[in-house]
Computed example of a mutant assay.
Amino acid sequence: MTTPRDLSIAVMDMAQGRPVEQGDLSLALAGAEMIDLLGAEAIRLDGDRIVPGLRPPMADRLLDEAAAVLIREAPYESVGDWLWRRGRGLSAAYLAALEAEGQLTRQRRRGMPFRSGHPVLADSPARREAANRWTSDEPVLATLGAAIGIRDEWTGDVSSVADDAVVTVLASVNDALMELEAVRQRRAIEDAAFDNIWRGE
């Protein structure tokens, strides 16, 4: 399994009662993809720029897709720009992939045989592997989980177990999540002001 797939499963399986915004999850999944691409030596970082490497065959379709859409001409793409571009709709893509592979099913609602129900994870080796990685406090998965709010902040030192490139990606994910939250807050304020105008307040 891959880091983004493990994160997707962890969100569904271990984050009960902690709903995650799909935009937040999509950004974190894009970061998780980048970390796996670094591990496969499909990319390297030059500062905060993503420099494509060789195109090793990726065992995962979505990771292979991620490698295929890398910008391969200088000055290359920044980590932050990649997160926003690749992250668009990514949580839905991983959900669809897990469902297509039989990793999850949809519970039918009583009395509504034709309506899709809530997605439920199947008991599978992939689910158990993700759970083991989650409960072992593996630093990358733990840090990503804390960033999107499905676990308490990981108190270990990521830099002691990951290289500088991985640390850069994790920091960029946090920056992107804070930027997204700022956009949400600004929109909420603007919407409230608009409502007040219509009410004559």
Results as ranks from 00 to 15, higher is better:
residue 105 T to V: 09
residue 137 D to E: 15
residue 33 E to W: 05
residue 4 P to C: 03
residue 14 M to L: 09
residue 85 R to I: 06
residue 172 S to N: 04
residue 9 I to C: 03
residue 200 G to H: 02
residue 199 R to V: 15
residue 190 E to G: 05
residue 112 M to K: 15
residue 81 D to R: 11
residue 121 L to K: 05
residue 142 A to Q: 08
residue 108 R to Q: 13
residue 42 A to M: 02
residue 41 E to Q: 14
residue 156 G to T: 06
residue 196 N to W: 12
residue 82 W to R: 13
residue 97 A to F: 15
residue 201 E to G: 11
residue 170 L to F: 08
residue 191 D to L: 14
residue 11 V to P: 02
residue 171 A to C: 07
residue 196 N to C: 03
residue 86 R to I: 00
residue 104 L to Y: 03
residue 47 G to R: 11
residue 83 L to Y: 06
residue 23 G to R: 14
residue 126 A to L: 09
residue 92 A to M: 03
residue 35 I to K: 01
residue 149 G to W: 04
residue 4 P to G: 02
residue 61 R to V: 13
residue 65 E to W: 11
residue 58 M to I: 01
residue 13 D to A: 14
residue 160 S to C: 06
residue 163 D to V: 09
residue 158 V to L: 15
residue 198 W to N: 11
residue 175 D to F: 08
residue 135 T to N: 11
residue 34 M to D: 02
residue 66 A to P: 00
residue 13 D to G: 00
residue 132 N to D: 08
residue 85 R to C: 04
residue 122 A to Y: 10
residue 189 I to C: 07
residue 104 L to R: 07
residue 72 R to P: 05
residue 177 L to M: 06
residue 3 T to N: 06
residue 34 M to L: 15
residue 47 G to S: 06
residue 79 V to W: 14
residue 181 E to F: 06
residue 44 R to Q: 15
residue 173 V to E: 12
residue 106 R to I: 00
residue 154 W to S: 06
residue 87 G to D: 10
residue 33 E to D: 14
residue 162 A to W: 08
residue 74 A to M: 04
residue 31 G to D: 00
residue 176 A to D: 01
residue 41 E to S: 13
residue 201 E to M: 11
residue 98 L to Q: 11
